[in-house]
């Protein structure tokens, strides 16, 4: 349905009737037309009137800026509703080697950002939200399809991190971010972090309740720094195994018991991160009904073009305009 940006301009539409009031060609007085038959072109007059009416109408419609209003249209794609939960702790700014990055290396957060950019580019149908956590969790971007917003949100994570790593509240926020539009079978939280912390008892209970209610799938991409213990490593007998000393391993165990589909990836280099993200992408690709935005389509050019065409026809008619017989300007002659 065509809409108008300046509907007030349509008030000028009665002007389109002017061809019925004013004639386009200058008329030449010729006596006794009824006796001067032959060569009539009755369609020419009607055609000129029609061209005038169409031309003026098109011009006014063009001025009213007609457009097809944009909107959204349902789209059956492949993807998921993803919340990227990204660790904003201080250590993320270090390289995988555990030191401040020099010219050849990139920091863990930079690598994660780069690979996430690539990831969202390859998946146009995903709805993605972004949250960060360090001392406190913060929602960066609610679930959206806007690629530019997502890219900006991920880029914003390049700011320097804070000190603490409050995984529990971050996870709770991420799980809470799914809205009504996210189908329950395609909800996933991707947590990217290089460490973990102890989750308080009450937070654990809240997480379990949230997980049961929201039915998310959970992925943990653990960016392992050189020298740090892996999350899958079972401590040797005699070695201390407490959440305080091995928070990553215990978080893994807690998440496994959460009662939702869960998978952890351990990456100690950008290549490994890439592989892990690919794996998550493959796993989280199922039919999803999303809304694709339809841009507003400007139609004024069609009307302006039509008006220009009609003006061209009228100009051509004016060019061809002539009198019945040219009027001589010579004075009346009296010859002897």
């Amino acid at each position: 349905m065509i809409a108008f940006a300046h509907p007030l301009a349509l008030l000028a539409l009665p002007l389109a009737l002017t061809p019925f009031l004013r004639r386009w060609l200058a008329s030449a007085p010729v006596p006794r037309l009824d006796l001067r038959t032959g060569g009539e072109a009755p369609w020419t007059d009607r055609l000129l009137k029609a061209v005038g009416v169409v031309g003026i109408t098109a011009l006014i419609l063009g001025l009213a800026k007609p457009h097809l209003p944009g909107g959204t249209r349902p789209h059956q794609g492949h993807g998921a509703n993803l919340v990227l939960l990204i660790d904003r702790s201080f250590s993320m700014d270090d390289s995988f080697a555990g030191r401040a990055p020099n010219g050849d290396e990139e920091s863990k957060s930079a690598a994660a950002r780069r690979l996430l950019f690539e990831f969202i580019e390859k998946r146009p149908d995903d709805r993605i939200g972004v949250a960060g956590f360090s001392t406190a969790p913060m929602q960066v971007l609610a679930l959206t399809q806007s690629r530019s917003a997502i890219a900006a949100a991920i880029a914003a994570l390049g700011e320097r991190g804070l000190s603490q790593t409050d995984v529990g509240r971050g996870l709770a926020m991420a799980m809470d971010m799914f809205d009504e539009a996210a189908a329950p079978d395609s909800r996933a939280v991707v947590m990217v972090s290089d460490g973990a912390g102890v989750i308080a008892r009450e937070t654990q209970e809240a997480l379990q309740a949230l997980a049961r209610r929201n039915g998310v799938r959970l992925y943990w991409l653990y960016l392992r720094t050189a020298g740090a213990k892996g999350i899958f490593e079972i401590p040797r007998p005699g070695e201390a195994d407490t959440p305080q000393l091995r928070p990553e391993r215990h978080l893994h165990i807690f998440l496994q018991r959460l009662g939702v589909p869960y998978r952890a990836f351990e990456a100690d280099s950008p290549e490994a991160v890439d592989e892990a993200i690919q794996a998550i992408g493959d796993l989280e690709s199922r039919p999803i009904l999303t809304l694709r935005p339809l841009p507003r389509r400007d139609l004024a050019w069609i009307f302006y073009g039509l008006a220009a065409l009609m003006a061209g026809v009228l100009a051509a008619a004016r060019r061809l305009e002539r009198a019945y017989a040219p009027r001589s300007s010579a004075p009346t002659e009296i010859r002897p």
């Binding site: 007085p29 061809l320 009198a323």
Partner: peptide, 8 residues
Amino acid sequence: GLADLRDP
């Protein structure tokens, strides 16, 4: 050409 004729 085109001539618009009018009988006066």
